[in-house]
Design a protein around this nucleic acid. Sequence first.
DNA 1: ACGCATTTGTTCGTATGTATT
DNA 2: TAATACATACGAACAAATGCG
Lengths: 244, 244
Amino acid sequence: MPAVADTPAFSPLYRQIKDLLVKGLQGGEWAPGAAIPSELELAARYKVSQGTVRKAIDELAAENLLVRRQGKGTFVGTHAEAQTQYRFLRLADDAGIAQGLTRRFIDCRRGRASAEVARALALKSGDAVVQIQRLLSLATRPVVLDEIWLPGALFKGLTAERLADYRGPMYALFETEFGVRMIRAEEKIRAVAADADSARLLDVVAGAPLLAVDRWSYSYGDEVLEWRRGLYQTRDHHYRNQLS
Amino acid sequence: MPAVADTPAFSPLYRQIKDLLVKGLQGGEWAPGAAIPSELELAARYKVSQGTVRKAIDELAAENLLVRRQGKGTFVGTHAEAQTQYRFLRLADDAGIAQGLTRRFIDCRRGRASAEVARALALKSGDAVVQIQRLLSLATRPVVLDEIWLPGALFKGLTAERLADYRGPMYALFETEFGVRMIRAEEKIRAVAADADSARLLDVVAGAPLLAVDRWSYSYGDEVLEWRRGLYQTRDHHYRNQLS
DNA sequence: ACGCATTTGTTCGTATGTATT
DNA sequence: TAATACATACGAACAAATGCG
């Protein structure tokens, strides 16, 4: 009559393998963009069949943590490659795909977390944080004004100059220079009226409606490593989303 | 030396099975919520192995066209069940999950497609359309004002009374009464200022910023069957999204 | 309450196809 | 051409969940 209580911790083999692979990624055993061992090697290492490894990798590939390439191998997901650059950015041009994205860093300073920022980043009030302001433009037109907060402890040496000098997405800089890998994000979107400063930078009139996109970015193990608030000008651009 | 030109139309067995299953769904062989034949039955019918059927169903389940239930069978996706109701609605309360969704139909009329509506629904200007206006409220507070256009030819007999009488999501009504199944949707979101009428209905001041959410809903085979524009009041609610 | 049949879920093994280098 | 890696396909067995008698 005691029964098995609840057996809270059962998981099939392939999921245990998946967890081991995530640990390998998290521990830095394989770098972003690098190949992980072949399915047969992993099967040998973990003493399971190739099919079980395959199922674990399938799930990781579906979550974009890994990318499979037939004939070549399986690679660690990254924000640095052309196909996957800006994969978190859902802004699209109303007309076509005519891009031409440019960035301008307005500010980058170190400070202490306010209560609000601390809550968002799972820190304590007063903990060190980095605050970045930047403007994204598409084809000469300013479209996104971002305010970004990062935990200071993980981003030692991040400066405005470093940001400005780097060619490529900010998330790629985070990967290569700070070992911080963003693998998923949650966004909350609302409509707000532009204040005077934002309006000036985004080239709209004060009070104009803007999207306010709050984003929490996570690394392995549901760890929040970034909070940002983006103000999107949607006069001739929009935020796109797929539902299913 | 002629070579195979390009072999534009090769697809693996499991994908051919997948296509056959979609044809069955599209042809109404299995109704929303009903069980499809077991994997072994399907394997026998199509003369392939169970594993091949399984892979086809896996993909369809990932797209929410089918739902697997261990020990019970595989079922056709629907908007009618508690778990999957309002699965296209991404609005969330800022605080918790405290829902309590109520609907009020403001208008439902038949008319002719304007050029804009015709383009959105892949119709010709002047084709018959149904236009619906409705208001969604969460816990007594109005939150979404929807304007919905449907192709008139497919929704004969849809009236304001029919809409008001039906208990359950509108997409469920479409499934059971009109044989129209929405399986995916695309949304384009921007920020706009509330006009006088919208402001009154949503209980905000005129000019208040609102989300304008344009949605195109598709049935099997990428067929557009609905266009709607929702105005979302985001004072104490937000549009949530997951990125990966 | 128990056992049985059904159905999906997991795991293994093997063989062959296709893409890459 | 050959070797390697992922992709497809088949077969088999057992586990777990469900529903029925």
